[in-house]
Design a protein around this nucleic acid. Structure first.
Lengths: 340, 340
DNA sequence: GTCCATATTGCAATCGATTGCATAATGTCA
DNA sequence: TGACATTATGCAATCGATTGCAATATGGAC
């Protein structure tokens, strides 16, 4: 930094009052403690000298930083842009600045990021990174750091979260395919170490058994397009009569499309496909993807709001906000060929 | 915050030395000033008490913050995720934390964001937001705030930037279309107030006149899919014989696709289309988009590296890094029907 | 043991904003 | 004018880390 910046002392010298009076006059909550004419002179001088408060100094005194850490597992995954958009929108409105970390999936790396954030004295964290039994969450709880989980949750009820109703999402997908005549339906699951992976797998099986059916599941090793392709290749090699696939997210679905193309299978003519998330651009992929839409921007907003409330002394009790998903039917699903 | 955290004084009390000795022992650059046995005791005690330095305090003393502001014009535009990924990767490696702001396009809003960042005493800024003659850049220069521009530049040579060679990019696009037999080529330009809008428009015209041709240009009012659609609708209504369109970026290209579909035109059979950026997923849109690829992640890395160097006392002279684009041919371009 | 050079450590101040409490100033009323 | 209550302002300390300089300790040579 090292740029000359105006201090409260300079304003005090210029107005002939004490620095504490300057501080009071410039704080809207303390303004009433200063005489009107004095305050006006102080405000004018602050503007004339381009005064910008040093939040480092104020926050050192106040024991806060106005900074919030936001950890993403993969910043390049398009689903996180709207989440991050919602988060930054609300944090900004609440007077916080979001430090964004592309934290990956290894807890040692995530903990290293959080240690860095701790030394910046962040007021709280929003984590989009958690696994079912998350080491980082334990680390944060141990240090009394306020945390909100977004998009994924823990199996344990340790901290508040904002997630989508994965059970319902899978029910919507399976019911839609059953309605099209499909009976042999497979599921390309996300990593079962994540709540989204596990809950969507469970939801898939529940929805299938609701129709007296049993589906095939293949876990992908990550939430990437490549992992989805690999899982689909294995799945298609292991089963013969699958007519539809439900993927745990849209990137996995795109990987399934890659695998179908590779085997000369058409979607939806040979195999119908449903994704999850309705991340940006799913309406212009080929074929336009039928998917379970989650209001990601709203999810980010809610998470940020919950954290801001908690930081402002609100209720510390643990809450889970479950967003209602909706099915968006596009061109990747069609009637089962056994029904045509 | 308000969490009890270990201070240097607590370690000093526990080891029976002065706080300044603790400070020296814990700083790798000062470690040699402390006796080995003393230093070892201090380090052990710091670990036992889970000491985490308070960077607020240290940075107040040092006149720095280790924070970098990153301003994006639209966080939800998929092209920014890889740029942001490259930026966060290098800043993190250099010991900085990136505060991300979704700053929009209005300079008053952008300046408000930067004022907030100034009060957090950010060490520098990376701006992806600039227009040709940017008010915010002037604001930052006036205050001695180090700035690097990424993806867009200014007409004036005031600050360093990392951008793509837009002239070459447009040349690649036009040459490709000419090679396919197209002669009546139009350009859906981005906002001409931005460097990318203006330079790509200029590059288009230069490439066309290189072939002794003249193209039609229609400016879109923003870099959104909707603006692209509107511009294409007007363009198609105004001209009759266009067989190919070069869009200033991929989102505009998707808007052009929307307009073509609306008019019952097929791409590439009726009209070929070239985008710009190769943002994520352009290979799975329908048709797979031929586009000019920019190495966005690398762009973000370079920008962050340049800023870090500048902050570490490196050369303050103004540099422009121009990345070489490449043409990625997919399914949205085909032979001109006049040539078939 | 003495002297000198070097290494080690502590002291006091700094960074800039905030605030509890004491002091000073002001206004009202008799 | 004096007494009292209220308002306004200044003082001194705090937050936690860093560091120039002075003081102290240590080690080696004679």
């Amino acid at each position: 930094m090292n740029r000359p910046t105006t201090t409260i002392k300079q304003i005090a010298d210029a107005t002939g009052v004490h620095p504490s009076t300057v501080s009071r006059a410039l704080d809207p909550k303390k303004r009433h403690l200063v005489a009107d004419d004095v305050a006006k002179r102080i405000v004018a001088q602050a503007a004339a000298l381009d005064y910008q408060p040093n939040r480092l100094a104020a926050n050192l005194r106040l024991g806060r930083s106005d900074l919030i850490g936001v950890l993403l597992p993969d910043i390049a995954n398009p689903v996180f842009a709207p989440i991050l958009g919602g988060i930054t929108e609300v944090l900004s409105a609440e007077g916080y600045a979001p430090i964004v970390a592309d934290a990956g999936n290894a807890s040692s790396q995530q903990i290293a990021f959080v240690e860095r954030l701790l030394s910046q004295r962040v007021d709280g964290l929003i984590l989009a990174t958690v696994s079912q039994d998350d080491e980082l969450v334990g680390f944060c709880i141990q240090r009394g750091l306020p945390v909100i989980l977004v998009n994924r949750s823990e199996a344990r009820d340790r901290v508040s979260s904002v997630v989508s109703d994965d059970d319902m999402g899978m029910r919507l997908a399976v019911d839609h395919l059953i309605g099209l005549g499909h009976r042999h339906i497979a599921h390309v699951a996300g990593p079962l170490s994540t709540s989204t992976g596990a809950l969507r797998r469970d939801g898939f099986e529940r929805a299938m058994s609701h129709h007296g059916l049993r589906g095939v599941v293949r876990e992908a090793i990550g939430y990437t397009r490549e992992a989805g392709e690999q899982a689909a290749i294995h799945l298609l090699a292991a089963t013969r009569d699958v007519t539809a696939i439900v993927a745990a997210n849209d990137l996995l679905a795109l990987g399934v499309l890659d695998a179908l193309k590779q085997r000369g299978l058409r979607c939806p003519e040979d195999i119908s496909l449903v994704g999850h998330n309705d991340m940006p651009l799913m309406d212009v992929v080929s074929p336009p993807l039928t998917t379970v839409r989650i209001a990601h921007r709203e999810m980010g907003r809610i998470a940020a709001r919950m954290l801001a409330e908690q930081l402002k002394g609100g209720s510390p009790e643990i809450r889970h906000v479950i967003l209602r998903p909706e099915l968006v039917v596009r061109g990747s699903t069609g009637n089962s060929m056994f029904w045509r």
